[in-house]
Design a protein around this nucleic acid. Structure first.
Lengths: 210, 210
DNA sequence: GTCTATATGTTGATAGAC
DNA sequence: GTCTATCAACATATAGAC
């Protein structure tokens, strides 16, 4: 209930929780109000409509995971460092917020597809340019005999996949492997290290002498 | 509209399409009926309730991706072959049905969490046993100097992640990288080969002489 | 700013004719 | 089996008192 916080913050916290769990269509304004410890009418007083409130939560969520990726890929560090930073960065954020990726992706497909193109266009670092730079960096390291050739899109997708997917699978993992919450935390904690190694081995040349 | 098919099949096809796209809460019986080219009342005549219709679609979807994995992991082939078979198998199924993973995972979290444990318990091949066997197989190949040590759960999660995740990202990928539908198909088609290589390099020992 | 009461629209589900 | 018409429940949103 968080009685200390302002009403607006309480609403946003409650909306985040309910929307993350049930999505736009599944969420009920009544439940959000209850979760925030206030009345249903207050939601409309502060945010006008369910749609507006949802957009606030979605944009916040999307902005939390997308610029992070672009910034690291565009940065001036080695490929190995990029791989390591992206994976550990995502795993750390999602450890605090496991529902984030499933919420963002289902929202994009179902309710917020149009917002994505807008946010990307507004981004100062254009993805296509960043991708071109990454392609060059890969070409250099291939030439130096350090790594195997790989499509930059494949590289990025694979890094994100192994970093993010376990969180999306959390309900299945806990059911399938009979994990408790502590088991899952330990599983993830271990992956912070192992995922980077896994990825770097996958891109590195097997017969490299480095 | 598929006028040739039976009404029941038309309903199931329509329900699959709408539920995959919008989930249980977002789907409308009216829209399913329209998509099937029939009346809303017919849905209830054939399936009693929205919930029952949804369960039919969900169980069908879940059964399509889960036994596939267990069967391959439990089979009597080399680790390298398992990796290759799992990834290519998933990529092929999802090429025909890209929305499947997002639908299944969001449904599990939001509407069908209880069904999963039931389906797993009914499965003749118990996941925990299969996992134990895989652990042994990994230990053997580590001992033979072929691969690096890895938690069997990590291995499975990583294989599924790089195989399945690109399909869940499809809306982002097409927006982010400006892919057309044909671009995406080509991207996926290329991954059928590259993903296996990527995974096998990741698990194989770098200084192996094989 | 916060509440209660209510208007308005939508939706899943059923009744009943054919 | 298939349709039209309708019910009952619910959810978003607003009006208006405090």
């Amino acid at each position: 209930m968080k009685k200390d916080d302002s009403t607006e913050k309480r609403i946003l916290d409650a909306a985040r929780k309910v929307f993350y769990e049930k999505g736009l269509a599944g969420a009920r304004m009544e439940e959000i109000a209850q979760e925030a410890g206030i009345n249903k009418a207050m939601l409309h007083y502060y945010f006008r409509s369910k749609q507006k409130l949802f957009e606030k939560i979605f944009l916040e969520a999307f902005g939390q995971i997308f610029p992070r990726l672009i910034a690291i890929v565009a940065s001036d560090i080695s490929l190995e460092e990029k791989i390591s930073q992206i994976s550990t960065s995502y795993i750390e954020v999602l450890t605090e917020n496991p529902q984030l990726p499933l919420f963002v992706m289902s929202s994009i497909q179902r309710d917020a597809g149009s917002f994505v193109s807008g946010m990307i266009q507004d981004n100062p670092l254009q993805p296509s340019l960043v991708l071109g730079k990454l392609r060059e960096q890969i070409a250099e390291e291939v030439k130096a005999g350090k790594i195997n050739p790989i499509d930059p899109r494949d590289l990025i997708v694979n890094i994100i996949a192994v970093s993010v997917f376990p969180f999306m699978m959390k309900p299945i993992l806990t059911g399938l492997f009979g994990m408790t919450e502590e088991d899952f935390q330990a599983f993830i904690s271990n992956r912070k290290l192992s995922v980077s190694d896994f990825l770097i081995r996958a891109v590195s040349r097997a017969d490299s002498s480095q």
